[in-house]
Amino acid sequence: MHRFANPARFTRIADRVLPFVAVAALASLGIGFYLALFVAPGDYQQGESVRIMYVHVPSAWMAMFIYVAIAVASAVALVWRHPLADLAAKASAPIGAGFAFLTLATGSLWGRPMWGTWWEWDGRLTSMLILFFLYLGHIALMHAFEDQQRGYRAAAVLALVGVINIPIIKFSVDWWSTLHQPASVLRLDGPTIHASMLWPLLITALGFKLYYLVLVLLRIKSELIAARLRALDLAKLSAT
């Protein structure tokens, strides 16, 4: 793994991988949204508004996935002092916050016709709101220090504390109030959602994940370039 710690090697590999990932992301998002909007059936109760699901559910998955990814990157950064892991955590946080916000916004739009209200203090909606706040805290702490290294360390500790607490928060909020439908895809006894809706959902979810990969690679690359620019500026200053 330490072989990939080298920023120059990372940039080389990222440059080679990026076009393929970008094309795959575009293709799966295109196919997924086409299937979701034109091929998949409307719901017999919810009608056409069920199509919000094809954005809502993948973003919710991504918001949770990215927080776990940040926690893993943070653990790697704290244990092995891996500079790219710090950058990965920093690059991922705003994307995760964006997905959490997208989940809340689409959930609210979906809740209006279905539940008759823009916002309901329902367990799963509320835990997504709390996850959004956790992201904001992580981003704020990351940028709160003069010394960027301290920001990385502090945010990494916070991410690990957060990831331990997320199941507790989720459980307590579910206990507190729930109106949401229970999970219907990731279940032990197989998905309860029909295949004509499941496939578009899975393809858009894949598209979201690839899109995240594209963004994170681009953001890490631009961070590396920015660090290099700063180093060059400093070198120029010390030369004069």
Partner: peptide, 16 residues
């Protein structure tokens, strides 16, 4: 910054 970091983590204690 402290409230922003700490308040979300306080929610389970508040609920119970």
């Amino acid at each position: 910054l402290i409230p922003l970091l700490v308040l979300p983590l306080y929610i389970p204690a508040l609920i119970f």
